[in-house]
Amino acid sequence: MNISELFQRGEFVVSAEVGPPKGTNIDHLVEEAKTYLSGVTAVNVTDNQSSVMRLGSLATCKVLKDEGLTPIYQLTCRDRNRIALQSDLLSAAMLGIENLLLLTGDHTKMGDHPQAKPVFDLDSVSLIHAVKQLESGCDLGGNELVGEPPKFAKGAVVSPCSDSVDAQLAKMERKVMAGADYFQTQAVFEPEKFISFMEKAKQFGKPVQLGIIIPKSVGMARFMNANVAGIHVPESMIDELKADKEKTKAGITGVEIAARIIKECKPYCQGIHIMALGWESKVPDLLKQAGL
């Protein structure tokens, strides 16, 4: 299922994210995805998220596809040069994986192998261009592909609540010009900023999925405020998390907050993307409370 076609039909696309394990046994991941994510359109599979070495995104996507789910293959520029990136994209097409999320990737210094050499031969914009080239029937070297060219739904990322809105809009425009078909946003906790951004971003005519994280605790909120660019959890939400520790620990408060954000932003976006961060079991309740 190519999710670009769903956007074109006007469907509200819901996706959720899973992270492969640091090992080869993914039975637990598959069962959780089948149990808790059956109500979403597609499942993003992260690519060595936060520069932590894990099982590969492409292999995990294939397993999820075989289990009847629709995967979104996340691909970063951090670990591969343009030869490997294009090769992996062709491999994805051969395996029937049609949906992509194309990112630059976190620096290796952030992860569990800080001594690893980062590649960054391409960035997210030039990676989108590379996919577009493959779809045209040739590679970045101008060499023709053999047989039918691949066709993908090319996703990109934008941070609508960043302090530098103009810079984000400029990046978004470059990604659109390179060939991006749709966007997923960084997690949003300030609906008014998201709505203001979307009023400006609608000029590009591309579908945007609202990024959602269920806040688990006061500590998590404080950590994101201090360390994650483009995310700010307002003090009023932190007060909600403080108010009833048992409700917060059980995920009730976090789900209520996330559902409220979705309801407020839904008229301004074409889908949502849920980053459950281990709380996949909360996704069905979140969708229900959000009216999805």
Rank of each mutant, 00 (worst) to 15 (best):
M1F: 01
F7D: 04
E11L: 10
N25F: 12
L29Q: 07
T35A: 07
Y36A: 01
T41S: 02
V45S: 03
T46G: 02
T46V: 14
Q74C: 06
C77K: 06
C77P: 07
D79W: 12
D88W: 09
L90P: 10
I97E: 07
I97P: 09
L103I: 14
T104D: 06
H107W: 10
K109I: 14
F120C: 09
F120N: 11
I128V: 15
A130Y: 07
E135A: 10
C138L: 13
C138K: 15
P150I: 06
V165Y: 08
A170Y: 05
E173T: 10
Y182Q: 04
Q186K: 01
A187K: 00
E192T: 06
F204W: 13
L210E: 00
G211I: 08
I212A: 10
I214W: 04
V218G: 10
I231T: 11
S236G: 00
A243T: 13
D244C: 12
K247E: 12
T248P: 07
I252C: 00
T253K: 08
V255N: 04
I257S: 12
I261H: 04
I262L: 05
C265I: 10
I274R: 03
A276Y: 03
L277M: 15
W279T: 12
S281F: 15
A290R: 01
A290N: 00
